[in-house]
Amino acid sequence: MGAIDLDDAVLTTRLDAVINWGRKNSLWPMPFGTACCAIEFMSVMASRYDMSRFGAEAMRFSPRQSDMLMILGTITNKQAPVLRQIYAQMAEPKWVVAVGVCASSGGMYRTYATLQGADRVIPVDVYVPGCPPRPETMLYGVMELQKKISRESLSARKEHIERFYASMARQEELQEAKGLSSQQVVREMVVAAGEQGGQQIW
């Protein structure tokens, strides 16, 4: 029986805590469903493993009206610029949950066509492993995101989001200069980053 920890029991008057409490309990998901993890996500939204308990019931399927991008399934190289465009269209504050091993690291598909992890092209906050992850695991991933949000500070600039927009600008310059499609440009950027030992293009 030591000192009483006030932080959990009493709502502090610090502005950050209040704002973060509001944000983490009303995360509106944008389900970017591509493959099998989207079917498990349907289970999460259905009655047994209800995600609306966490305030995340409003699935608007529009990046403009959501703050949590859930990548559900494999991201292929053809899909990569689409994912970047969707993330760019979301308004801040925004977070990304990569659900499943395909979105986290490419999964079992180490091939020419699969992007080896969505974090190569957009910043990711929480990785939920599993193939597919059980609905409880997905809920745990959302809870971890909530913990992460409660540690954030309003005054800290989101450096990774700025870097992402800079990489979008670079992508567009390359598209203009070379006259290639967005998929080919993103693929070349990803391979170039891999050759230089890095992984991310943002």
Partner: peptide, 17 residues
Amino acid sequence: HPLRKDYPLDGGDPFCN
């Protein structure tokens, strides 16, 4: 053309493997 035998499985991406 990816499914030709002389096309590498990782498509030339060194990070893949």
